[in-house]
Design a protein around this nucleic acid. Structure first.
Lengths: 157, 157
DNA sequence: CATATTTAAGATAAAATAGTATTAAATCTT
DNA sequence: AAGATTTAATACTATTTTATCTTAAATATG
């Protein structure tokens, strides 16, 4: 009897890490659903967005270390935004969770790629990444929160 | 004596997988350095671009399975492009190695995100990913090869 | 003060990705 | 035909990312 080999390939292209995506969704949830400066229960967020509680907790810990969130233990505790939503931009969250060089490095991963010694993809890639960086740098949590409520956009399943 | 804990965080944002980047660089090397249709020694490529020989071999195997390359064993063997460099586009390589949905899915990873039920990032993300897809779809290996030679662009260290 | 609630921190496990090594098969050269 | 060269295929190891679990610390409440 011959064996039938079936190979299935799972494709995945990453742009942002899971941690980063969870962080973005969670903060968008907070600004769109909760009053300003309120401490929000992590468990509630994890249930609403169907994200693992412990994983989300660790993600928030990074943001707390970075000074973006403050945390409060005990009953009615949780996490809260330190700054006003107008002053927090998407890029801040991405930088905190995925590093400062988001869309800022060579597509081909060559060290020192730049005007002086460009890789073949340099000039078309640089224009797109600059545009994306601009977009992320100028879009605040407040703006997104308003948009989410007005257009009834979804953050979870 | 107290212990001094030093935590170093390595940041990495992935756009393309290593395998995909290696594949792109390798094929660009072939079209910019070698005569058309020639069989190119994998070892040579790996040494020129400083990529692990075995890893590159595995990457080429995928491209061979996909029908983009043909391979030839034995002395003076190697791999060669099946189609003309004019007819191979960057997106073909990316699709073969990183999957067909490059820049084609929701930034926040929400299944079914689209016009009907968009996530908050949908409309600004969609325009950029469309532009990138367009760029990758219309840039051929031949075009890149010419450009690399004319502008003396680099593919390795 | 005791207890319940909640985040913090660390340990561990699972999954995905990247890299290495070994053996087999095909082809050329002599 | 024998041996050398080179890709193919498989197995193994290491690293990184993601996810889970457990314990500790802080806080509020009765």
């Amino acid at each position: 009897m011959r064996e039938l080999a079936l190979k299935i390939k799972i494709y995945q292209v990453k742009v942002l890490s899971k941690s980063c995506v969870y962080g973005l969704r969670a903060l968008l949830y907070i600004v769109s659903e909760k009053p300003r400066g309120a401490f929000v229960n992590i468990r509630e967020i994890s249930e609403q967005l169907e994200i693992s509680f412990h994983f989300l907790t660790k993600t928030f810990q990074v943001l707390t270390e970075e000074g973006m969130l403050r945390s409060y233990r005990g009953p009615n505790g949780g996490i809260a935004l330190v700054k006003e939503p107008e002053d927090i931009f998407l890029i801040d969250i991405v930088c905190a969770l995925d590093g400062p060089d988001f869309f800022d490095k060579c597509l081909l991963g060559l060290a020192g790629c730049g005007e002086a010694a460009p890789c073949p993809a340099h000039d078309f890639w640089i224009s797109h990444k600059a545009a994306l960086r601009e977009e992320f740098s100028t879009t605040s949590l407040a703006k997104m929160g308003t948009k989410i409520n007005k257009e009834k956009l979804r953050l979870g399943p």
